[in-house]
Amino acid sequence: MKPKPKPVLTKDTHKEKPTNIFKNRDGLGAYLASPSSYPSSRVIFHNDNFVVINDLYPKATVHTLLLPRSSAHNPLHPFDAFEDRDFLAAVRKETARLKELVAKEVKRRFSSLSKLDQARETALKNGVDDLPPGRNWLAEVKVGIHAHPSMNHLHVHVLSRDMHSECLKHRKHYNSFNTPFLVDVADFPLARDDPRRHPGREGYLDRSLKCWRCGKEFGNKFKALKEHLEVEFEEWKRE
């Protein structure tokens, strides 16, 4: 019996173009219908209840999507789907699993550059009893759904927080992950008066651009922000 292949997370798979009958806003349906027909570079893993894929157009170094397979829930807006407490609990459990997987992948890529991790490695080699904690890679992962999803099938974003990607192309891309427009699964079910239920009214996507790491304001100057993010990315990797 051949060993089960290890999950593969990659940032270079957005150039693939799946050939299927699902198009435009229904594109995620293809992965739900036939996850085994995709390579491990696209479908990371799947089971009877969930499919996990690498985002076709990643907005960060590691960007994955959790797709529930429940036909009773995946056509719904997440605000409605997560009113089902049992379903929400299942999504939270699988999201936590995926978050750990993404954190491990981010660590694999950047641990050798991290001052915190290298300090711990040095202490280990020197036999120091009181080891420094190392870097908390789970804290470098964002989780959530968009208040106004761009795709029809329910999906949860689990991604590294660096916002470093050639697919990050305009203000709405950026603000959709760096304002309350991204709603953490842990916050559900939302109260009826929660302002995140009205993302258009709140104007999340049109907000002034602000660096996720240092808080510097860029107004509507996305190009300037993008250049700044390159610098922040290099510094973030070395924390």
Score class of each variant (00 low, 15 high):
V143W: 02
P195Y: 03
N126Q: 12
L131F: 13
W212E: 07
D187P: 00
K17F: 03
T122W: 07
E234G: 02
I53K: 01
V141I: 15
S112A: 14
L225D: 09
W236P: 00
V185K: 04
N74F: 12
D48F: 03
T19P: 00
G219F: 09
E105F: 11
L88E: 09
R69K: 15
Q118E: 13
L116A: 15
R92V: 10
E235A: 07
R171Q: 15
P149K: 02
H73F: 13
K223A: 14
N20R: 05
D162K: 03
H14L: 04
R42H: 14
F45H: 12
T64R: 01
K210G: 00
P5G: 08
H46S: 14
Q118Y: 06
F188A: 02
F233W: 13
V141P: 00
K172E: 15
R135T: 06
V43H: 01
D129L: 11
S37L: 13
T19A: 11
M1P: 14
M163R: 11
K59L: 14
E234S: 10
W137N: 03
L56H: 14
F177R: 03
V8E: 12
P7S: 00
S41E: 14
G215S: 09
P199K: 04
F22D: 09
N74K: 05
L66M: 02
K17S: 10
F218R: 03
L88M: 05
Y31I: 01
K221P: 01
E121A: 13
